[in-house]
């Protein structure tokens, strides 16, 4: 099995195009100001359809993280151990990501500040983070 690729749709295309251009974008509602990821056609807070894209500052904090010691797909066999973390952006939206400093999570802590680093992985630009020094 080959590695997965995101399903690009009219709704999430600006997100993935943004990453290829070096920017992590999120959505904000013109009506109520709520900000979120992943991309949607309507604001999940007020259900408004007047929404805009903003570029994230790149700052955030670790909410939680795990370290995989088991490969759940063949392409992950060479990658274990690896981490997946929940990061809350300074602007509010949350996403699943990887922290690049340590595969096994050395030095990670909940609330630890992190900063965006967009990495190209097999032609796909992914929003990852590193610990802020």
């Amino acid at each position: 099995m080959t590695r997965p690729v995101p399903e690009i749709t009219a709704i999430n295309r600006p997100y993935w195009d943004g990453l290829a251009e070096g920017a992590l974008r999120f959505q904000r509602c013109d009506g109520c100001g709520h900000a979120w990821l992943p991309p949607r056609s309507h604001c999940p807070a007020c259900l408004g359809a007047e929404i805009r894209w903003e570029v994230a500052s790149g700052g955030g904090k670790i909410v939680s993280w795990v370290v995989y010691h088991r490969a759940y797909a063949p392409h992950l066999q060479d990658r274990i151990p690896y981490n997946v973390a929940i990061v809350a952006l300074d602007e509010g939206p949350r996403l699943l990501t990887n922290i690049t400093d340590s595969a096994i999570g050395e030095g990670f802590a909940t609330g630890a500040p992190v900063v965006l680093t967009i990495e190209e992985d097999d032609g796909l630009h992914l929003p990852r983070f590193r610990l802020r020094g």
């Binding site: 690729v5 995101p6 759940y72 797909a73 699943l96 990887n98 909940t110 992914l126």
Partner: peptide, 22 residues
């Protein structure tokens, strides 16, 4: 695989509980 987040290596039911455990 858990939707588009699988590109980050996000797989399995157990992983979500591991996030809660941590």
């Amino acid at each position: 695989p858990r939707g588009d987040d699988s590109v980050m290596g996000w797989y399995s039911v157990a992983a979500g509980y591991a996030m809660l455990h941590r």
